[in-house]
Nucleic acid binder design. Structure first.
Ligand code: FES
Ligand code: FES
Lengths: 146, 146
DNA sequence: ATATTAGTCGACTATCTCAATCGACTAAGT
DNA sequence: ACTTAGTCGATTGAGATAGTCGACTAATAT
């Protein structure tokens, strides 16, 4: 039930872009430095998020990446689905990539996997990057004035 | 957020052993056939579950595997932890294998991962193999008399 | 006793996924 | 034109996954 490094990096990058949404475009290098993500790896993550429609970019000097829509309209679930695929623990209970298993009629476990999927999806779908950015600002403020 | 095949097979095998708990020891071959799991692969899964204390076995004719304790006292969470490790999406929020990440103080995401971990753990910890066996019996009965 | 049955153990392998790296290219500013 | 910075495809190394295999050991039935 583990989140991939890619999924984690993508979330962190999106968070950085959300916290500094007002600044406009950020370079890969800045995001990489701020979040401690290998630059060359981050490059391909951002590209993937761009292709999926969550980011836009500008080339050349003063270029960089920025969110395609406000942080309040992007859920963490969407980003994780782009990087790691379906949230479901197994495919027979996936909403986005449903694929029935052979012995479904007798299977006592399906309901359980569905509960897990629904619980995870509910949390990640209701949480937007605006929420995360806000929590991040609060955490930072608290760490500055203890 | 995917469950490994090993985790899935282990759950299915434990379910089979729970549904037929009264029958005493079951051969690897029977469990394998009933649940459609490669025999030689199942062998090593059952051994792992035995080493972890959830199964016991008897050799020779009339031998086989059986639960070390009643199905009501084994949660799905325990079995998955044996096969796949911690339930947490990332280590900094794992209870069983906690490992702090470097930038914890500023991290806005930690709380979210913790919510996910807690939700998953709550479901899998409260669900026992007795519950699963019961659901399985109900499902079977329903499929016989529609 | 001994043949048969069935779990035990360690090692082995093929395939895949993950996490990353690289080089060459293209577009945007100055 | 020159520099900066994103784009794209390919490749790689390590490690995990999903299995297989052969030889061994213990229990039972005859
Ligand atoms: S796990 Fe898919 S139906 Fe049982
Ligand atoms: S993910 Fe561990 S502290 Fe942010």
């Amino acid at each position: 039930m583990r989140l991939s490094t890619k999924g984690e990096y993508a979330s962190r990058a999106m968070l950085e872009l959300s916290v500094r949404y007002a600044e406009g475009a950020l370079h890969i290098r800045d995001i990489s430095a701020a979040q401690g993500i290998p630059e060359r790896f981050l490059e391909q993550i951002l590209l993937q998020l761009k292709r999926a429609g969550y980011l836009r970019s500008r080339k050349g000097p003063k270029g960089g990446y920025f969110l395609a829509k406000p942080p309040s309209r992007i859920s963490v679930a969407e980003v994780i689905r782009v990087m790691d695929g379906p949230l479901a623990p197994i495919d027979c209970v996936s909403v986005t990539a449903h694929d029935p298993c052979p012995r479904e009629p007798y299977c006592g476990l399906k309901g359980l996997w569905k509960e897990v999927r629904d619980a995870v999806a509910e949390i990640l779908e209701r949480t937007t990057f605006e929420d995360m950015a806000e929590r991040s600002r609060v955490a930072k403020a608290r760490s500055v004035t203890p």
